[in-house]
Amino acid sequence: MENLNRSVESRPLRWGILSTGTIAEKFVSEAVGLKNHRVQAVASRSIEKARGFAGKFGIERAWGTYQELFDDPDVDVIYVGTPHVFHYENTLAALTAGKSVLCEKPLTINAFQARSLFQTARRNNVYLMEALWTFFLPAWKKVQGWLAQERIGKVRLLQAELGFSTAFDPNSRLFDPELGGGALLDLGVYAVSAAQQVVGNPPEALDARARLSPSGVDMSTVMTAVYPGGILAQLSCSLEQLTENALVIYGEKGKITVPHFWMADEATLQSQTGDDFFRDDRKTLGYAYEALAVEADLTEGRKENLLVSGDFSVALAETLDRARKLTGVVYPGEK
């Protein structure tokens, strides 16, 4: 396989897009404007959809099968944006073909699959990252800086909630167990991953309760967790209730508040050591930052990201598995 260690003077990083859905559109709309990046090809099971997507974004190649994208010699990295129940098979096929992959969150529907993907990536010496874009945003970088400087002292408590009001629809992906539906994997992944990023480890103890939909997936899930060092967390997600949608990190000297933390554009520090405020005036959602992180990793010869490593993603998937076991949500392929 061609060595993807790159210098900034080398040819552009060539992306292949697997999916023509909404999340893929959001990613590509920002990736096409990045210097030293090129969206080279897109694939769909429908050649008409692939051609329509390619025309919309000025993409050179449209493929009517995923295998054609995997076999394209002019694609360096594949962005997987399919529904998350398909992430495992799509990403496994891309890695097996020798392609590096940025796969949307959640990486897989369970930890067994997540471990398998990173084992495959390491065996094939190719790059793999879960697209947890939150942690590459400027506001999150600022929060990480405040924590590293101990501006609020030792962290004692976290609260993270993310919820929207959505009417139950048995035909929607969100409520379909065959597609890995439910609040936890769609929204809760942000709250759980944020807590894991702040603390640096998964929880030592976890309790979870959920209200299930008629289809058997969770409409809302509430988790209470105890992390190393006795740090406590309250984490919640909902498809049926609009919530405060914020992350609050409490420390012995103050607190950090991040509104809309999964797509953060601001953060507030209130502390005995002095208050601070950060606002990011970007005009986009911010998906470009994860694409730049992939470029930086490949340029520097890394096969995994330092913030969202294989160990991080597997630990995150294990926590989500623990929560689902407690709430009784089981997907058809797991029975």
Score class of each variant (00 low, 15 high):
L92M: 13
G21Y: 15
T65P: 01
Y79G: 12
I47R: 06
V39L: 09
T91D: 05
R61E: 09
A93I: 04
R38I: 09
G64F: 15
V8Q: 13
T82E: 09
F57V: 05
S29G: 12
A41T: 04
R11F: 14
K35L: 15
E60H: 06
G58A: 08
R14D: 00
W63T: 03
E104H: 10
F86V: 02
L34H: 06
P83R: 04
K105N: 02
A43W: 03
P83I: 00
R45M: 03
K105S: 02
R61P: 03
S44T: 05
V39H: 06
V28I: 08
T65H: 13
L95K: 08
A94L: 07
P83C: 02
L92Q: 13
W15Q: 01
F57P: 11
Y79C: 11
V32R: 05
P12D: 02
E68Y: 14
E25F: 05
Q67S: 14
S7I: 10
T20E: 09
A50N: 08
V39A: 06
L69K: 01
S10G: 11
V28P: 02
A93T: 04
I59P: 03
A31F: 15
R14W: 08
G64Y: 15
E60M: 01
H84D: 13
S46A: 08
V42F: 01
E30Y: 02
T20I: 12
V32D: 07
F27D: 06
G21L: 14
K35Y: 15
T82K: 05
P73W: 13
E104V: 00
K26L: 14
Y66C: 04
A54M: 05
W15Y: 09
A62W: 09
V28H: 03
S29E: 13
W15D: 02
R51F: 00
C103M: 06
V77Y: 07
S7C: 11
T82G: 04
E48D: 13
A94V: 05
K99D: 10
L102T: 03
A43L: 09
H87F: 04
P73F: 13
D74N: 00
W15R: 00
A50R: 05
D71E: 11
G58I: 01
E89N: 09
E9Q: 10
S29H: 10
R61Y: 10
V101W: 01
R11Y: 14
G21T: 13
V77I: 12
A31T: 13
G21I: 14
L34R: 02
H84E: 13
S7A: 14
R6V: 02
H37T: 01
V32P: 01
R14L: 04
A41E: 09
A41W: 11
R45K: 10
K105G: 00
